[in-house]
Amino acid sequence: MRGLELQAIYVMWLRQMKRFLRFKSRILATFIQPLFFLAIFGSGFRNIEIPGMESDYIFFFAPGIVAMSVMFSSMFAGISILWDKQFGFLQEVLVAPVSRFSIIIGRTLGGATTAIIQGSIILLIIFGFGIPFPTPFGFIMTLLFMVLIAFTAVGFGLVIASKMRDMQSYPIIMNLVIMPLLLVSSAFFPLSNLPKEAFYATLINPLFYMVDGLRGSLIGVDNIYPPLLDFGILLIICLVVMSIGSYLFSKSEV
């Protein structure tokens, strides 16, 4: 029985990987956007003095780009379960003699893996832009953060997917929820310039801990909290979001 559940997880993971590798245009698109951001923002703001920022703008901005690309791609993986619903494939999976929990685990692992692959390539590009290689500890923390960001975002995608009917609401969620959260996550500018009240408000923004933690691990400057603290908080957020996501998914009727 246990073997069957492992097979289910493996199948769901393998399916994601195959689809990822076959969709060449989609892979390309996920690199182009961060590259644009990095090249245009990074070089455009390079010589601007921003108060509260100690490093070069491109140094400050790079971790935000990594966090953003991992997050977007894994959230999309979570939400795209709606496509399976729409195209009927989900029924085929749900009628198999495996638990819904295994299906979610496999799906999450698949989405996280593809997101981390993309994130790693962005990371390589960033090093190409001249960002220095972090310490071994910093590097390991960077990878761990990418994993954690991926899982949290897939979980969030699952939560949204179980509440949405089709993919049409996806851009609305992106524009009304994710973009504002991203803007006040310190990905683009330091939060120290915000009014005190606004700064405290950002502390309930999960995206803040993703960006701040990744910045602390990768660059080691301009982060507000030590990476390990960010990591702890994000871990709790991740577990909560993942449990809500899998609960809602297991309860949803096809």
Partner: peptide
Amino acid sequence: ALDTELTGRENLDFHARMYG
């Protein structure tokens, strides 16, 4: 209820795996 991004054989293989 097929995965159209996969081949026919892969659809069958994935199904068979999930049934042990």
